[in-house]
Nucleic acid binder design. Structure first.
Length: 320
DNA sequence: ATTTGGTGTTGTG
DNA sequence: CACAACACCAAAT
């Protein structure tokens, strides 16, 4: 199989060369700006989640991260379309429970429209294909994976693509997001994470190949049905089934591990579903962040619970 | 509030 | 083939 030509049908050539011309991304682009914003906003989010029970005032948060209250508010607005107050509101248990409540019906509706047709559901308009069991079992042997690092609204992203579509998306920032024991990944750590998933694949750095995917994924104005984002699901059968149903959860909705288990016809497999969701390689695009514990708790996130919270808050600013 | 016991799938030896 | 590890969950303290 020839691997020389990426042969990406999806991103228009114009967009691709424009992006490739100045990697990682043009300095003035909204994406680069929001990435820089995130680095500063992150500390505020971490503080908010740590102290959320006390519902701290804006003044207190601003003081904690070394910004003036007005600066913090405008930064938040630019980043998420949300004031810190609204953001705080959007990540409370109450709000999460509400998401869960109408998440079920939203999922039903999406599935009704979705899985049958070729034009796929999902707000991001993803078209996916799964890899054959043989291709998966070999640990990616014979597969060429192109990777690149790019700014994103949630820190520096690592994208991995085959010639058939986006295969993985993760984060590579140096700053530690939780007080978990796990060290901050950084670029090397994030890449190692990917290599662990497909130990026998060939990894080639190629920012030009991955840039269009990242640009499309994080810019809602480019989420268009006529240009679906091409995605490749590489995993075991059960995992792929779980990831496919993740794609049906609409923006601004959420579901629980248990509900997801019932959805795929394995009502007692909530825990197995949790494990599979946790192994989702394509963060954000396959919205594993929209799965919560049945109580509305955030439970876990491979790239840090703080980031899960950030993404959910960011999406809350985009749904209303 | 916390503990406990039942879970399905995957990866390891 | 057995066994441990899990981003769970509901019921019983």
């Amino acid at each position: 199989m020839p691997t020389a030509a990426p042969a990406l049908a999806d991103p228009p050539p114009a967009a691709r060369s424009a992006l490739a011309a100045s990697s990682p991304l043009a300095a003035g682009s909204p994406l680069a700006a929001s990435c820089a914003d995130y680095e500063r906003v992150r500390a505020a989010i971490a503080f908010l989640s740590r102290e959320r029970l006390r519902q701290p005032s804006i003044e207190e948060v601003a003081r904690a991260v070394g910004l003036s209250p007005s600066h913090l508010t405008s930064l938040f607005r630019r980043w998420a379309g949300l004031t810190p107050k609204d953001f705080l509101q959007a990540i409370t248990l109450d709000h999460a429970r509400r998401l869960l409540k109408d998440g079920a019906s939203a999922l039903d509706a999406a599935l009704e429209v979705g899985f049958s047709g070729p034009g796929r559901l999902h707000d991001l308009f993803v078209r996916h294909e799964a890899m054959s069991p043989g291709e998966f079992k070999s640990g990616g042997a014979g597969l060429t994976l192109r990777y690149g690092f790019h700014p994103s609204p949630f820190g520096e992203a690592l994208a991995v693509a085959t010639d058939r579509g986006l295969a993985a998306l993760g984060w590579a920032d140096e700053t530690r997001l939780d007080d978990r024991a796990r060290p901050a990944p950084g670029r090397e750590g994030a890449l190692a994470d990917m290599r662990r998933r497909w130990p026998n694949a060939r990894f080639v750095e190629d920012e030009a190949a991955t840039a269009p995917y990242v640009a499309r994924a994080f810019d809602p104005s480019l989420w268009r049905a006529d240009q679906p984002l091409r995605v490749v699901l590489i995993g075991a059968d059960f995992e792929v089934r779980v990831w496919e149903s993740l794609l049906a959860i609409p923006l601004g909705a959420a579901t629980s591990y248990g509900a997801l288990a019932r959805r795929i016809g394995a009502p007692k497999a909530a825990r197995a579903v949790g494990a599979a969701v946790g192994r989702n390689p394509i963060s954000f695009v396959v919205p594993c962040h929209r799965v919560l514990g049945s109580s509305g708790a955030l439970t876990g996130y491979h790239w840090g619970v703080t980031r899960k919270q950030a993404i959910l808050g960011w999406e809350a600013g985009r749904v209303g």
